[in-house]
């Protein structure tokens, strides 16, 4: 049995490997190559070395501004999404009538696409701001908090499901033992529940972190960078660079490569840090 498996395993691997190569690896290498070239379409590229990378930073401050905006947004939304999602999960793992209904409803925003959400929230936020005689394009602050609200609304339900799974996975004996030992509800929360859901926390922070960092649709639909480019995040800036002027496709590509490296480094660092806090079972 083992022998046949060993014999045929390359064959079984082939479809997945082919899909991986075609859909991920080759485009990735092509993208990497294009970041060192000047091109209009992918088929007429000319090698220019590192010039695109220099231009990404030197031609204007858009990229750095977008980076700073993205970092601030990511920090705020990772904290708010996770705290609120965990609170909801705690509430919905108690015996409340209609728990399943609530869980479904909270999860639903996740099923709507980012562009649609962006336009819906733009209407809502503008409707509110209208009372103050302004709209969301008036200041980057409005765009920032609009994005945070939108991100929370969309992501909380999803993260809540993961936390619920984690909380339900805590052995009943542990909670019982804590109760017998006279732990207050807060002590139970801090010393039992939170450490026990650390694996959920790892996944949730990972997902919120990378999703916030890579946010594009919502940003495009909600503010499109207005006012000016002040509320443009990294992905939108890359898009604008790529399509905004002739001859800057390569610079956009270079920014995309830098972007990839940043997301990868941050995600690995986060995984490493939170993994170490997980409780082994």
């Amino acid at each position: 049995m083992d022998k046949t498996l060993k014999k045929y395993f390359p064959l079984f691997l082939l479809p997945a490997l082919a899909a991986f190569l075609i859909a991920f690896f080759i485009p990735f290498l092509l993208g990497l190559y294009l970041s060192f070239t000047e091109f209009t379409t992918v088929s007429n590229a000319q090698w220019v070395g590192l010039r695109n990378y220099v231009r990404a930073f030197s031609s204007n401050r858009d990229f750095l501004n977008a980076l700073w905006f993205t970092v601030r947004f990511t920090v705020v939304s990772v904290i708010t999404v996770n705290v609120l999602a965990f609170a909801l999960a705690l509430a919905l793992t108690r015996d409340i009538r209609g728990t399943n209904l609530f869980r479904t409803i909270f999860f639903m925003p996740n099923l709507i696409g980012g562009i649609v959400l962006g336009y819906i929230w733009q209407l809502i936020i503008n409707g509110v701001l209208m009372n103050f005689g302004v709209d969301i394009t008036f200041s980057a602050k409005y765009g920032f908090w609009g994005l945070v609200i939108l991100m929370n609304w969309q992501m909380i339900g999803y993260m809540m499901i993961i936390y619920i799974a984690g909380i339900q996975n805590i052995p009943g004996e542990l909670i019982e033992a804590a109760a017998i030992d006279g732990a207050s509800p807060f002590q139970t929360l801090y010393h039992v529940t939170i450490p026990m859901v650390a694996s959920s926390t790892t996944i949730c922070t990972f997902l919120t972190l990378t999703n916030s960092f890579k946010l594009f649709d919502q940003n495009l639909a909600l503010t499109a960078g207005a006012p000016g480019r002040e509320s443009a995040m990294l992905a939108l800036d890359i898009y604008n660079t790529f399509y905004g002027r002739m001859g800057y496709e390569g610079v956009g590509q270079a920014k995309a490569v830098i972007f990839f490296l940043m997301v990868a480094v941050i995600a690995f660092a986060q995984l490493f840090l939170t993994r170490s806090k997980e409780v082994e079972r």
């Binding site: 709507i112 696409g113 999803y158 799974a165 984690g166 339900q168 996975n169 694996s199």
Partner: peptide, 20 residues
Amino acid sequence: RVLAAVLSAAIAVSFAGCSS
């Protein structure tokens, strides 16, 4: 169970993403 929940949720999300 956590993993199963994540995976199923991920599938749901990716489908939603594809269609939208």
